[in-house]
Simulated scan of single mutants.
Amino acid sequence: MNEQQPPGARYRLWPPHPRALAGLGATGLVLAGVAGAFAYTGGFLSPGKLTQSRFIDRFQALNGVHPGFRRNHAKGVCVTGSFASNGAGTRLSRAAVFAPGSVPVIGRFAVGIGKPFMPDNETEVRSLALSFRPAGGEEWRTGINDIPAFPVRTPEAFYELMGASAADPATGKPDPARMQAFLAAHPESARALGLIRARPFSTGFANASYNSLDAFRFVNAEGVSTPVRWTLAAVDPYVAQTPAPDAPHDPNYLFDALIVRMQQAPLQYRLVVTIGQPGDPTDDATQPWPADRDEVEVGTLTLDHIEAEAPGNCRDINYDPLVLPDGIAPSDDPLLSARSAAYSVSFTRRAGEEKTPSQVQVPETQTPGAQAPVTPSDTGKGS
């Protein structure tokens, strides 16, 4: 789908904002980082009351308006590379991306900040958005985070979470009592936060692993539908960041470390599909599936080129998770439709605004062994 033609009700874009919950400590960092990981489809809740425009308006109220930037996950950098399928995914899905061979990929690393000029230590959540582009014109877009669960189950709860995260006009800070009341009313969110806090965040983008969180369905050539989730597991060894830097001298330390790492050698991630079993929730992203579920490694993602956001690259792609090829279908997770139309609103607003250069700049040094970067114009999509 061409991002300059905003997607319809079946399509979306993607995620988070700054430390709106600074007064709540580490939990605040997590909630602020993941709160924006979804937006809303018009009229899905109460017609005439809650629309995709109101969701984006609330993002803007929380973060301010930064013309030309995404309303969430505003701070990011573009990467390109390829996905090499090993063919193992074809028993689960007829999608062309899983046929043996290699397809080009355009991606974007970002942090959970809605303000594009905030320092990296104002969040802990990292994200990776990808557009897989096999021959034939179909496309698979996905946006994934380095957390094990999403903190809310429904669109209604997300809207409440944003309200609870808002700063009190009298103090300029979030009200801890409002957040405590939200968590008391949503025990599933409290449980999800416990899972998120149980494992420290990684030291950077390169050694983080990224999870789909929402469930989808893979459909194979015989029409058999299988519930799945997926993970891009980092090949670089995980190293815990404990604690996060208080006030790093380099406000872009996460991105600068990623640039240095990619200029040394390509990054690689294993795409691992988890197969759901009867009874596993497909409509609740706050609940991870049991650890003993079957997993299938279906290929390897290699990212070999990095560049600053600019016209024609990842800056102009709406990473809608419901841009799906034949062979991949949405589940009954209510967050999926809720993460679609508002992304269209966000894209439409920023597309009509004057663009400001990203704070994350990349020296013109090619990664060893890198291929020519893929751009939206290479495939006629996202330009």
Score class of each variant (00 low, 15 high):
241 Q>A: 14
351 A>C: 07
31 L>D: 08
22 A>F: 08
316 D>Y: 05
87 G>Q: 00
110 A>M: 08
268 Q>I: 00
35 A>V: 14
167 A>P: 08
93 S>N: 06
66 H>G: 06
142 T>E: 13
212 S>H: 09
81 G>W: 00
283 D>T: 11
330 P>E: 01
167 A>T: 02
254 L>R: 12
263 Q>C: 05
210 Y>N: 02
73 H>E: 11
176 P>L: 03
186 H>L: 06
186 H>K: 02
48 G>T: 07
245 P>Q: 06
309 E>T: 15
20 A>W: 08
130 L>A: 07
148 P>N: 08
25 G>C: 04
119 P>T: 08
121 N>M: 04
226 T>K: 12
203 T>I: 03
241 Q>S: 15
233 A>T: 10
355 K>Q: 15
98 F>V: 11
264 Q>F: 01
152 V>N: 05
337 S>A: 15
279 G>I: 03
274 T>N: 02
30 V>I: 11
171 T>H: 10
277 Q>H: 05
115 K>N: 12
148 P>L: 09
153 R>E: 14
380 G>E: 04
222 E>V: 12
337 S>M: 01
300 T>C: 11
100 P>L: 12
203 T>W: 00
361 Q>D: 11
171 T>V: 05
304 D>A: 02
24 L>W: 13
109 F>R: 04
374 V>K: 01
18 P>T: 07
110 A>T: 11
108 R>T: 12
142 T>N: 10
34 V>N: 07
218 F>Q: 09
130 L>P: 10
244 A>N: 01
189 S>N: 05
352 G>R: 09
327 G>N: 00
86 N>Y: 01
286 T>A: 11
193 L>K: 13
153 R>F: 02
222 E>W: 02
117 F>Q: 10
69 F>A: 14
286 T>I: 07
342 A>K: 04
158 F>R: 14
266 P>V: 09
13 L>G: 12
281 P>W: 10
210 Y>G: 04
33 G>N: 12
381 K>Q: 11
375 T>C: 06
362 V>S: 08
191 R>C: 01
139 E>H: 04
365 T>Q: 14
14 W>S: 07
316 D>A: 09
176 P>G: 00
204 G>I: 10
114 G>Y: 05
301 L>P: 10
223 G>K: 07
243 P>V: 02
214 D>Q: 12
212 S>L: 12
369 G>Y: 01
4 Q>W: 15
19 R>I: 15
272 V>I: 14
303 L>N: 14
272 V>E: 13
33 G>I: 09
12 R>A: 12
84 A>G: 06
219 V>T: 15
284 D>K: 06
340 S>C: 13
38 F>H: 07
312 G>Q: 04
300 T>L: 15
199 R>W: 07
180 Q>G: 02
323 V>W: 06
105 V>P: 00
115 K>E: 13
219 V>L: 08
155 P>K: 04
290 P>Q: 03
308 A>Q: 13
100 P>I: 10
